[in-house]
Design a protein around this nucleic acid. Structure first.
Lengths: 261, 261
DNA sequence: CTCTGAATTTCGTGC
DNA sequence: GCACGAAGTTCAGAG
């Protein structure tokens, strides 16, 4: 039998609901006003860009106001199934099962969940969103390199373009070195691999000139295979210290974020 | 004041706990035995490979038996913060806040969460994991192409290698066409973009022969820019019908999964 | 361990 | 809307 606890205006919890009670609750809750959690024993089916099936097991279903649907199993960081947004939702009961269907228009896909038991249904109404900031992104690193080439690359390069379109894609940085050579820089904030070299190779090849074009891969590290590929293509690698790069961007700021590294 | 509901062997819910009650509960629950959900008003801080901060807002914290930690805000599919696995967890109360710290060894990173209110704490003990299958992956498509080149590519190609290492990376398929040309195939299950062309270009260039090597990009679609790049490099594109490809793999099976597409 | 590439990748930005 | 590339990407498979 269902037991309710603390169902006020802000949030609510109902534990051990019957299938019918859960369906009735969700009918109301899945209107986009609430961040809803359903825990129970469920199976799932996804059809769309791919297809997947999961058999009965303990699952955690999260439905957010924006229409994001996330189904977690007991293990792993990634959800078993999901829908980044939903255009239509159906709640029903059939043969002792709570069935939920989440449809998406583009791309066309559907996620079906069937629960034989529901441990609890919990929700928070009109949840408030805090602010969120992220630091130490590739954008930050690229900006640091563009502003401080001498400190980070060991030479003076005057950069004149960022994120410029070429037939092969968008290159990070374009500049001219002390001898007047065109320099194309590809920046990675993680260890560079072969795909990074392929990117740089394409951008260098695309540059419309007969003159020598230098290609420099800038990253905190590079894999052996990537380095071999890079050298065979006549490209260069410059190791960059992330702490140094990020500290160059905000010289006055406290470095608490970096101390941990 | 805390209200408990249905705390039996399998799962439990406590709503409106005090900060101290929540801390006491989590102290016991975060031992790897349970799939735990905490809803409350929290802020977060992450430091490690990158760094991020979120201010107070309604959050949903999920901690799984394997040590995965996932912090969701009210919107979006992706969590604000996470830890794919945790090596050490700390629960404490300080100045009216519930503080949780999740540490990871490699890479070295830490996620700190501070909650001023806790709406509820809910858990499922020793959750059972169901089975999971995924269909219509790139592997499936590659196998279909390798087994049915005539139907899918419009010509007979005898494939003799898959996923072979080259200096530029690992190419999907190697074969010989009717005229004895080497053919390298790159398969994509989604629309092919420029990076797919760059992959193929590298593999073709790496093939150790003076003779002509054909490079074929096989995908359901290709972007305009990718097609231009592909053609400028003398490579080929073959459109493949995913339904057809997947049905070739399992001719006898029902096609319910594909009917939706 | 590292490396490589897929992923129902999602997400943001620019066109 | 498409397209391109980053992501604290995660994940699995191979070496």
């Amino acid at each position: 039998m269902a037991q309710e606890a603390s169902v006020d205006g802000r949030f609510g919890v109902v534990s051990s609901p019957t299938i019918e009670e859960a369906a009735g609750l969700l009918e109301k809750l899945l209107d986009g006003s609430s961040m809803v959690v359903v825990a129970g024993v469920c199976s799932s089916e996804y059809e769309g860009r791919g297809a997947s099936v999961s058999t009965e097991g303990d699952k955690l279903l999260i439905v957010k106001p924006g229409g994001a649907v996330i189904l977690h199993g007991p293990r792993g960081f990634r959800p078993l199934n999901w829908q980044p947004s939903t255009s239509h939702t159906e709640v029903a009961t059939a043969e002792g099962l709570l069935t939920l269907k989440f449809y998406r228009r583009t791309p066309r896909e559907v996620l079906k969940i069937a629960c034989s038991s529901v441990w609890y249904v919990a929700w928070v109404r009109f949840p408030e969103e805090g602010a969120f900031w992220m630091y130490m992104t590739e954008d930050d690193l690229r900006r640091a390199v563009a502003l401080h080439p001498r400190e980070l690359l060991g030479e003076d390069i005057r950069f004149f373009a960022e994120e410029k379109r070429t037939p092969s894609g968008k290159a990070d940085l374009y500049g001219v070195d002390g001898r007047g050579n065109i320099v194309i820089v590809e920046v990675k904030r993680v260890r560079a691999d072969e795909s990074a070299v392929r990117q740089l190779e394409g951008y260098v090849r695309d540059y419309p000139t007969q003159a020598k074009v230098r290609g420099i891969l800038v990253a905190p590290d590079i894999s052996d295979a990537a380095r071999r590929l890079l050298e065979s293509r006549g490209l260069e690698f410059r190791r960059v210290d992330l702490k140094k790069a990020y500290s160059l961007l905000k010289p006055g700021r406290g470095r608490s974020v970096l101390d941990f590294l």
